[in-house]
Design a protein around this nucleic acid. Structure first.
Lengths: 167, 167
DNA sequence: TTTCATGTAACTTTAAATGTTACATGATAG
DNA sequence: CTATCATGTAACATTTAAAGTTACATGAAA
């Protein structure tokens, strides 16, 4: 099954944006995700339309959060991405004429609806601030250097800056 | 997202097998699923290995249930199919070195684990007998002719019998 | 001994997610 | 004012997993 990695990706870069606390370009985010700036823009577009982030063009431009991390839940992000399919389980046919198949689909839909409700309820209880706090706890064993420091220092090193779109 | 339709498919044909109450060939089941006998055999293989159905070669051969419908749950079938991936949501990378990504993955895994547990618990409460009963309730408005009658009559009609594998 | 049926390996097709290329738009530095 | 940096997005290519297909071996029953 080919998965939809957008939620995971977007959460990853959102936490980095919180840590960096400055406009971050698609090129930089692409390095973090080991992908391409265009993919970043395409993925972030939904979040922008939903008002959770804003983007600016030109020098000093990039992406910033539009709301405090504690005000954004994982459910918000999930919804902003427009993800509807949650399960790999599918129906052989939608609107089947066969009554047997209708009974089967009804039973499976029932179970999946309940599981989806639970998952969405869980995502509503977790904010970006929670994830950031968890990350910081994971950083503790490595001393008080912040990831933001490391990244910003990294960017100043010759040959390591995140390049823009390939010409 | 390309779905895994095996559970839906297999449940569909299992109920038909219960209704027909005789060995049913892969060719017949393929007609019901609007697919090909080889796909049927491949999909049913897991159920055979798990002991829920048995298959016989030669004239009068085909598939039969090995256990009473009330003794087989949807969870059993799901497991017998060897389905492990349940969610379309994926991680960008497994075993990420980035602590941010680790925090994100942990949060998402947590939520998905809970949802999976609920879904599996639901599937354990539903037996093939339950699905058959639901199907029969759906049949009521159409009078007392059974689907098995219809199908068996259909097979006797010239030109409508389920053909074997294409030569 | 012919026909019917399953078993399975190997290959092809399909569809969704992701990656890539190309170019338009707009903001800022100098 | 124009070169550079950055986003926005359409169009196309690649990748991968599910499903479909072909081919042939095995075995049971008429």
């Amino acid at each position: 099954m080919k998965h939809d990695n957008r939620l995971s990706s977007v959460l990853h870069v959102l936490i980095h944006m919180i840590e960096l606390d400055r406009p971050v370009t698609s090129a930089e985010l692409a390095v973090m995700l080991n992908t391409n700036p265009v993919v970043v823009r395409r993925t972030m577009a939904g979040l922008r339309e939903a008002g959770f982030v804003a983007s600016e063009k030109g020098h000093g431009g990039g992406w910033v959060l539009s709301e405090p991390p504690a005000a954004i839940t994982l459910f918000d992000i999930h919804q902003a991405l427009g993800i509807t399919d949650l399960f790999t389980l599918g129906h052989r046919s939608d609107n089947p004429r066969c009554l047997v198949e209708q009974a089967v689909n009804a039973a499976l839909d029932d179970a999946m609806t309940a599981a989806k409700a639970l998952l969405m309820a869980r995502l509503k209880t977790i904010t970006l601030a929670d994830l950031t706090a968890d990350f910081q706890k994971r950083m503790e064993p490595f001393g008080q250097t912040t990831l933001a420091d490391m990244w910003n220092r990294h960017l100043k090193t010759k040959g390591h800056s995140a390049k823009g779109d390939p010409k």
